[in-house]
Design a protein around this nucleic acid. Structure first.
Length: 735
DNA sequence: GGGTGTTATCTTTTT
DNA sequence: GATAACACCC
């Protein structure tokens, strides 16, 4: 091997990081605790492959979950080895899938101009299909239908699912078929397709698959703990068993299990890829020892984890603080006062601060408080810019101009602004379309005389004119033309007197045009189509930049992967965090991992707040402090929690002093502590699908006795055989 | 057919 | 508290 000079940055890495960078060949699993420099190890490895081992950058594929993470990774590789890094593909799973499919569209029955249906598009389509199937009214909620679609994508069988009362497996199959057919007619693919279809295309043609593998033999995956079954399938196709696949993850930061991520991917990696190397990164370079102690105290309560240390490299730092507040407004007041005080007296900058919360609804009180104090702030997440109704409407015109068969787009703007195509005419259009696209219905209706026919003719002519714009003008000008020609901008202008939001909506359209202009700057060959794809795959955090110099407000989920000097973790109350649904906490361990993610974002200062009363769903509720507060070692806290709090959370305090059993002990049978999380356990029925964090998913084959959460059951795990387990260690698999 | 007002519903996290 | 579906009136 032609070894070039040993780069100086290699010496700045710790031995484990060096091991990652220098790893020669074969599968590599990196278990990286929070703040352990995993991105550094990842980027240095890529740089090392290129500049020392002489690997062709085009042979490197780095997959992440957000565009922001991908951009940052690429940027850092460029810093290390210069413009050579340009050849590396660093992108999200979805952007990789989209790019792959543009190139190989015919393999999945599409043309390369296919449209991407986002969540909202998917929901609208399902809603229409449900209505057409007579399941429209409350028997099957569209969101439920979407979950079922996603579940079948991950390989589940409708017959094995727990379906809502109004839906038979056969009806679900029909629905799925119609959904698929509608996507086919529309030349559209939904988010799930962007990953599933490439996997299927590769699996279907071994020679093709081998060619792709040879093109990009180096595959690196970040945040591996959040991959789902389909993503794992894609990775299986992209990297052969003994191939150079590197995955980096932290089972303690798995916060998307609710969305189908399977922690089993990371837990079972070594088994699936024999001969793999495992490296643990446990030295933390981000946070003070006090913050790490808090993080460790909380995550240590989880039973289902591989178990990692967080070794501090910094001093103890300031103790972690807990702020008790009277209500949500008081909480906002206290938090913002602390921010403002630190800026005044401690030379802190607004961008040092992050305010985290469990649900988006909590952001408002903080926004109000920040605004009245005149502090610059930025809310990241919530309603995505590209999900705002007016933005989606205008983009729907663009989509329809490019692709007349985009049914969701067509129906969305058929009568927006109002042009005389009401409920009746809309029904006629759909009837005329039959199994074809709604546009076929539009053309059929346009051929009729009468009032509706005339209106529809006008609509068809409008779309033809817009198509002309779309073909001849750059994206920003084409969109400007759409706002004008369609009458959409006029509609908003007319509404300004009556509707105070109309002004904001007009501003949003201006912002859309600006975003399109930015896109033109950034891409060599910017087209309206490429802008639409970027818009569909864009996330809110992609734009976030500490250089904006603002206080950052975001949910804990959005915070993953980021770090801040000073962090406020707010709403630390039972039922809010951990969040309860329908009166019960669904998965405490996942909530706890979320708390762990939040705590470990903080570099220097961490303040947790809780309110005695809080408005929830429009009514004031009395709250008790989160059990997670109790789980922080008292030695890491500035002030001890008051006795009142411990009285209200007595049972939580009691259980929190018991060490969790080791989930990896060799004992075939795991002992049960009745006080521990009893309220979160359930007793699965015979034949029920259940999940175990270590063994994965299985089926209950026998009841072995015991009562309530103590019930012991035998579970058949496809990969591991039959295990006898106490029910409380199992979670139901939603079907 | 369209626009307005009312009611009902449901509130998590998102590539 | 906010939004969406719904009913009613023009």
């Amino acid at each position: 091997m032609a070894t070039r000079t040993r780069p100086s940055w290699l010496d700045q890495l710790n031995p484990e990081q060096q091991q990652v960078v220098l790893h020669a060949h074969g599968p590599l699993l990196v278990l990286a605790g929070a703040g352990s420099g995993k991105t550094r190890a990842l980027t240095c490895r890529i740089a090392h492959l290129i500049s020392v081992r002489g690997v062709d950058p085009h042979g490197i594929l780095a997959l992440t979950f957000t565009n922001r993470a991908a951009r940052e990774m690429k940027h850092r590789v460029q810093e290390l080895c210069g413009p050579e890094a340009d050849g590396v593909f660093a992108g999200t799973f979805h952007s990789f899938g989209a790019r792959f499919l543009r190139r190989h569209a015919p393999r999945v029955g599409r043309t390369n101009g296919f449209t991407i249906y986002d969540d909202d598009d998917q929901l609208r389509l399902l809603k229409r299909l449900l209505k057409a199937a007579g399941l429209g009214d409350r028997s099957v909620a569209p969101a439920e239908a979407r979950r079922l679609v996603e579940r079948t994508r991950r390989g589940m069988d409708p017959d094995a699912m727990n379906l809502p009362p109004g839906l038979q497996p056969a009806a679900l199959r029909t629905l799925l078929d119609r959904y698929q057919a509608a996507l086919d007619v529309a030349n559209a693919l939904d988010f799930g397709d962007l990953i599933l279809r490439p996997a299927e295309a590769l699996e279907a043609d071994p020679a093709f698959c081998a060619r792709i593998q040879a093109q990009r033999p180096w595959v690196l995956v970040d945040e591996y703990q959040d991959t789902d079954a389909v993503q794992e399938r894609l990775l299986g196709a992209l990297a052969p068993a003994g191939g150079d696949l590197m995955v980096v993850g932290d089972d303690d930061q798995a916060i998307y299990v609710w969305r189908g991520a399977q922690v089993d991917n990371i837990l079972g990696f070594q088994e699936r890829r024999p001969g793999s190397t495992v490296v643990r990164l446990e030295r933390n370079y981000r946070s003070t020892a006090a913050i790490l102690s808090a993080a460790d105290g909380v995550i240590g309560r989880n039973r289902n984890r591989l178990g990692k240390r967080l070794l501090p490299t910094l001093g103890a730092g300031e103790p972690v603080e807990v702020a008790e507040c009277q209500d949500g407004r008081d909480e906002a007041r206290q938090v913002i006062s602390a921010v403002s005080r630190a800026i005044r007296t401690e030379d802190a900058a607004p961008s040092d601060f992050a305010i985290f919360y469990r649900t988006n609804a909590q952001s408002r009180t903080f926004e109000d408080a920040l605004r009245s104090r005149g502090l610059p702030y930025e809310v990241v997440g919530g309603v995505r810019f590209y999900d705002r109704a007016e933005v989606k409407d205008v983009l729907a015109y663009a989509r329809l101009a490019i692709n007349r068969n985009d049914g969701v787009a067509c129906l969305r703007i058929l009568n927006t602004p109002a042009r005389g195509i009401g409920k009746k005419a809309r029904g006629d259009v759909l009837a005329a379309a039959a199994d074809g696209s709604p546009w076929d219905g539009v053309l059929a209706m346009a051929a009729t005389s009468g009032r509706a026919g005339k209106a529809v003719t006008g609509f068809a002519a409008l779309i033809d004119r817009l198509a002309e714009l779309a073909q001849t003008l750059p994206p920003s000008q084409a969109l400007a033309g759409i706002c004008d020609e369609s009458g959409y901008a006029d509609m908003l202008r007319d509404r300004q007197a009556a509707d105070p939001t109309a002004r904001d909506r007009l501003d949003n359209l201006q912002e859309l045009l600006a975003a399109a202009a930015d896109h033109e700057e950034a891409r060599e060959e910017a087209t309206l189509a490429s802008f639409l794809e970027a818009a569909a795959l864009h996330t809110d955090v992609d734009n976030w930049d500490p250089a904006h110099g603002r206080v950052t407000l975001m949910t804990l989920h959005t915070a993953k992967g980021l770090e801040f000097k000073r962090v406020f973790l707010t709403g630390m109350e039972e039922n809010l965090f951990p969040l309860a649904r329908g009166g019960a906490v669904v998965d405490v361990e996942e909530e706890r991992r979320l708390a762990y993610v939040g705590i470990t974002r903080a570099r220097r200062r961490l303040i947790l707040s809780w309110a005695r009363r809080r408005m929830i769903h429009g009514e004031t509720r009395v709250c008790t402090p989160s059990r997670f507060l109790r789980e922080i070692p008292p030695s890491a806290l500035k002030t001890q929690l008051s006795p009142v709090e411990s009285a209200t959370a007595e049972h939580l305090a009691r259980r929190s002093h018991r060490p969790p059993p080791d989930p990896f002990s060799d004992a075939d049978f795991i002992d049960y502590d009745p006080d521990y999380d009893a309220q979160d356990s359930f007793v699965p029925a015979l034949g029920a699908r259940v999940a175990h964090a270590v063994f994965g998913e299985g089926e209950v084959v026998e009841h072995l006795g015991g009562h309530g959460p103590k019930t012991r059951v035998a579970v058949l795990f496809p990969a591991r055989g039959v295990k006898r387990i106490v029910a409380s260690y199992l979670t139901p698999v939603q079907t």
